[in-house]
Design a protein around this nucleic acid. Structure first.
Length: 276
DNA sequence: CGGCAGGTGCGGA
DNA sequence: TCCGCACCTGCC
C-alpha cells in the first residue's frame, strides 16, 4: 500500500470467528511511523477493507431464499473489498476493458516494472503502485509501448484528472450513490460497465447492479438459468425481483462462489469460457 | 487473416 | 436517448 508517500506492507491475521470477528494488523515500513501517521492510517484501512458496512439485513432477508440462501450460509459475512485507492482501482478497470485476463495481467506488469517498485516484507515480494505524478511525467506514446493500446489515452487522461484534483476520493465516500455515479462518469474512459463495478467494489453500494458485461452475462446465464445465453435484461430482472436493494451483493455471492468452486473442482463449461 | 475479448467516446439520427 | 463505429493488441 502506498499511503502518504510511504510504502507499507500490511499483514492481516485472523484472531476470531465468523460470529465474533477479530483481526490483528501488522504494518511493515522501512521508516518508523509516528502515532499520528498510524492514527490517520487506521480509518483508511477500515474503509479499504470494508470493516464497517453492515450487511446483516441482507443475511436476514435472504438466508432462506432458495438460491442465494445456501451461499449466505457458506459465505456468511462476505463483503466487497476495495483494497486499493480509487486511482489504483481505476487503473485496473481501464486495463480490464475489452481484454482477456492474460492481457490485463501483461499490461499491469508492464506498468509496475516501469512506474512501480519491487518491495519485500514478511518474506513476500510485491510490486507497488505509483503516484499519479509519475505518469504525468511520461507520455501517451510511452504508455503505448507498454502495450496498453488505446487504453493509454484513458490512463493518461484519468491521471491528469487526478493530479488536477478534479476528483476527491474522500469526498466521494460521503456522497449518495447517484452522486458518486455522476462524478465517476466524468472520468475519461469510465463508462457504465466500469462504474457498475466501482460503485460496488470501491464504494460498497450493495444495490448497484445496472450493467451486465458479456462475460458476466455468459456465466450468470449458466449459473442461474442453466442456459448458454440469457438476455442481460432478463438477468437484471431476476436480481431486481429477488434481491431488491441488495442486487449487486447477491450477484457477488453467486460470482465468488463460482470462482471458489473452480479452485476446488474442475468445471468444464467454465474453463471453456475463460480465456487467458 | 478475420474475428473477437471483463468497453468507451463520439458523431449523427 | 439510442444507435453504429473506431480503437490497441494478442490469440484462436
Amino acid at each position: 500500500m502506498v499511503w502518504s508517500g510511504k510504502e507499507l506492507g500490511l499483514k492481516f491475521q485472523n484472531r476470531g470467528t465468523i460470529n465474533k470477528p477479530m483481526v490483528t494488523l501488522s504494518v511493515f515500513c522501512k521508516d518508523s511511523l509516528s502515532k499520528e501517521f498510524i492514527g490517520n492510517l487506521i480509518p483508511e484501512i477500515r474503509w479499504r477493507f470494508n470493516f464497517d458496512s453492515d450487511i446483516s439485513e441482507f443475511a436476514r432477508k435472504f438466508e432462506h431464499e432458495r438460491r442465494v440462501g445456501p451461499l449466505i450460509e457458506k459465505w456468511r459475512g462476505m463483503k466487497p473489498v476495495a483494497g486499493v485507492s480509487l486511482y489504483e482501482m481505476l487503473i485496473i478497470f481501464v486495463l480490464l476493458q475489452n481484454a482477456t485476463v492474460g492481457r490485463t495481467v501483461q499490461m499491469l506488469e508492464n506498468l509496475f516494472s516501469r512506474f512501480g517498485r519491487r518491495v519485500t516484507f514478511d518474506d513476500k515480494k510485491f510490486s507497488t503502485y505509483w503516484e499519479p505524478s509519475k505518469i504525468m511525467k511520461s507520455t501517451e506514446q510511452n504508455l503505448r509501448e507498454l502495450k496498453l493500446g488505446y487504453r493509454a489515452r484513458f490512463l493518461m487522461k484519468i491521471t491528469e484528472q487526478f493530479t488536477r484534483n478534479e476528483i476527491d476520493e474522500f469526498a466521494l465516500r460521503k456522497m449518495k450513490r447517484d452522486e458518486v455515479k455522476k462524478e465517476l462518469l466524468k472520468l475519461y474512459g469510465i463508462g457504465p460497465a466500469s462504474v457498475n463495478y466501482l460503485l460496488f467494489e470501491g464504494f460498497y453500494f450493495p444495490e448497484s447492479l445496472e450493467s451486465i458485461p458479456p462475460f458476466e452475462q455468459k456465466l450468470m446465464s449458466k449459473v442461474i438459468f442453466n442456459r448458454s445465453l440469457v438476455s442481460t435484461k432478463r438477468i437484471l430482472k431476476f436480481f431486481r425481483e429477488n434481491y431488491r436493494g441488495w442486487e449487486m451483493l447477491a450477484f457477488h455471492y453467486f460470482w465468488e462462489d463460482l470462482f471458489w468452486r473452480r479452485k476446488q473442482e474442475h468445471i468444464e463449461w467454465l474453463e471453456k469460457e475463460i480465456r487467458l
